[in-house]
Amino acid sequence: MSREKTLVELVDANGLTIGSTTVAEAHTAPGRLHRAFSVLLIDAGGRLLLQQRAEIKTRFPLRWANACCGHPAPTGDLVTAASRRLDEELGLGSIALKPVGVYVYRALDPVTGRVEHEYDHVLVGEVDGEVPSPDPSEVLALRWADPADVRRAVEAEPQSYAPWLAGVLAVWDAAQAEPGG
């Protein structure tokens, strides 16, 4: 089945489930708020793994984003779904992931006309020697980058980055600032 035909969980502004619809319908203008996840992968040196989204992506193709993103199935387990996507996109299915917060955003893709309106759970994993093996239908390129450099680049060239990346990084920053974070 095409990923566009799979179901996503619709949520209200508080993240409570209110129904489901297909990926395609959720991302058709004006967009419907639905549950999603964004995974940040960090190496031992504190660098972030960024992926350049493949040209065939239906939303924000060719833009740089966090390690991977996706949608859990309705009533599905968030960490399990994120681990599955890490394996599908990067061949990294065995990374332990920790939820660190939520970022809600809405963004219109000017190229495809599709809309991201997501209740985005941010998960973080540490990479220790694992070598990504990206699926070329998902990922055009990968690179490791210093988080401060990424923040500056997103601000200077927002058209080169996924519109959710700055918010996802802000959630991670807030989680690190908390005691025990």
Rank of each mutant, 00 (worst) to 15 (best):
R152G: 13
D149F: 01
Y105H: 14
Y103E: 07
V122G: 02
E138D: 13
L97Y: 04
D146E: 14
R106G: 00
R114M: 15
L142Y: 05
L142H: 01
P110N: 02
V139T: 00
V111P: 12
K98W: 14
V115C: 08
Y103D: 06
E126K: 08
Y103Q: 07
E89C: 13
A96Y: 03
L108V: 12
D135E: 10
P110E: 06
A96H: 09
R143G: 12
S137N: 08
V124A: 02
R143C: 11
R152M: 13
L90G: 09
V104N: 04
V100E: 10
V115M: 04
P99F: 02
G113K: 11
G113P: 04
A141W: 07
D109W: 13
Y119H: 14
L97H: 01
D109S: 07
V115H: 05
E155N: 03
Y105D: 14
E126Q: 14
H121T: 06
L142T: 02
Y119I: 02
V111R: 11
S133P: 11
T112C: 09
R143Q: 14
E88N: 10
L90A: 07
R143N: 10
R151K: 13
E88M: 13
I95C: 06
E116L: 02
A107D: 04
S137F: 05
T112S: 12
P136K: 01
E89K: 09
S94A: 15
V102S: 04
G101E: 05
A96C: 11
V154D: 07
G129W: 11
L90H: 03
V122K: 03
D120Q: 05
L92I: 13
V111I: 14
L90M: 10
S137R: 12
P134M: 03
G93Y: 01
D135V: 00
E126W: 14
A141V: 03
D146I: 03
G129K: 11
H117M: 01
E138K: 12
L140N: 08
D135G: 00
Y103M: 03
G91A: 08
V131N: 06
L97W: 00
V104D: 04
E116I: 07
P99K: 12
E118C: 00
D128N: 15
H121V: 04
V127Q: 11
E126M: 14
V102C: 03
A145P: 02
Y119K: 11
S133Q: 15
L142N: 01
W144F: 03
D120K: 02
D120S: 05
P110V: 08
H117L: 01
A148H: 15
Y103R: 12
G93T: 05
R106I: 00
V115F: 04
V102P: 15
S137G: 01
E89P: 12
R114G: 06
D128K: 15
V104E: 07
V115Y: 03
V115G: 05
L140H: 06
D149C: 08
V150S: 08
S133N: 13
G113Y: 10
Y105F: 10
R114N: 12
A145W: 01
Y105K: 08
V127Y: 13
D120Y: 01
L123C: 11
E88S: 12
Y105S: 08
A141C: 04
E138S: 13
V127D: 14
V150G: 03
L123K: 05
I95T: 09
A148V: 15
D120E: 10
V102L: 01
A107C: 02
V102F: 00
A141K: 06
E130M: 06
L90R: 01
W144L: 03
W144P: 02
R114H: 14
E138V: 00
